[in-house]
């Protein structure tokens, strides 16, 4: 296998419903993500963008096909067994940020590392490093409720990146933000991608995103076109 491929999907299908009403959310998709890629999944609502991200992120299982994440074949593993794969290799950014409300910005970013069981000093250095990078040092003592949407999404990005995952997945990260803030977030992700060679797959139908990114994969009715 090519060293630079971080995610490899082969003949992947995902169905919802049974019998007559069965629909293919993803229909026999084959798709590669290479290290350093910045891919935007575009398409109409219901085309299957989120479904594809869920499968890439190992938080859902395909009904057919093979998914290899950073060299790890996930076909034979269930969702609970995939938890360590998610922890090691995946970073998620969500549409509505999904920060833990009772934790400060710092603590939210620290959380994945705590669960990984790193030692205290390493955690502290790493969290501060990433907060510096994203310009969040001044916010680190704030709770999510005390921050704007853009700031929360920055913290969420920091949380996704802190474990240095093989791939960062973002589902409509700008949908809950105004266009200016959305553009800032996209620029941040692009900057991280260019400077740090971070691999990003992002689903969006936001023009702010589509105008900025060249590598667009369009999905229609569960197929890549």
């Amino acid at each position: 296998m090519n060293e630079s491929v971080v995610a490899k999907l082969t003949d992947v299908s995902k169905y919802y419903g049974n019998g007559e009403g069965r629909i293919a959310a993803l229909d026999n998709i084959s798709f590669n993500v290479k290290k350093g890629d910045f891919i935007v999944l575009a398409g109409l609502s219901g085309s299957g963008k989120s479904t594809l991200l869920h499968l890439l992120g190992c938080i859902d299982k395909p009904d057919k096909g093979q998914i290899i994440i950073d060299g790890q074949d996930t076909t034979m593993m269930n969702l609970e067994q995939l938890a360590p794969v998610r922890m090691e290799k995946i970073g998620f950014v969500f549409q509505s940020f999904n920060l833990v409300p009772v934790l400060t910005a710092y603590e939210n970013v620290e959380l994945p590392l705590l669960f990984k069981g790193l030692d205290r000093k390493k955690i502290k250095n790493r969290v501060n490093e990433i907060l510096d990078e994203l310009g969040l040092q001044e916010r680190k003592g704030h709770f999510p409720g005390e921050m704007s949407g853009g700031q929360q999404q920055r913290v969420a990005i920091a949380r996704a990146l802190v474990t240095s995952p093989a791939i960062v997945l973002a589902d409509e990260p700008t949908a809950n933000l105004d266009s200016k803030t959305g553009a800032d977030i996209v620029n941040l992700l692009v900057e991280l991608n260019e400077k740090k060679n971070i691999t990003v797959v992002l689903a969006s139908h936001d023009s702010v995103v589509l105008d900025r990114i060249k590598n667009i994969v369009t999905i229609k009715d569960g197929k890549i076109i």
């Binding site: 992120g57 938890a83 998620f92 999904n98 669960f115």
Partner: peptide
């Protein structure tokens, strides 16, 4: 529920 789902997505085990 959302917080729990987020933690699960992050790879945190159900027991934790």
């Amino acid at each position: 529920v959302r917080e729990i789902g987020t933690l699960k997505a992050m790879g945190v085990s159900n027991r934790w």
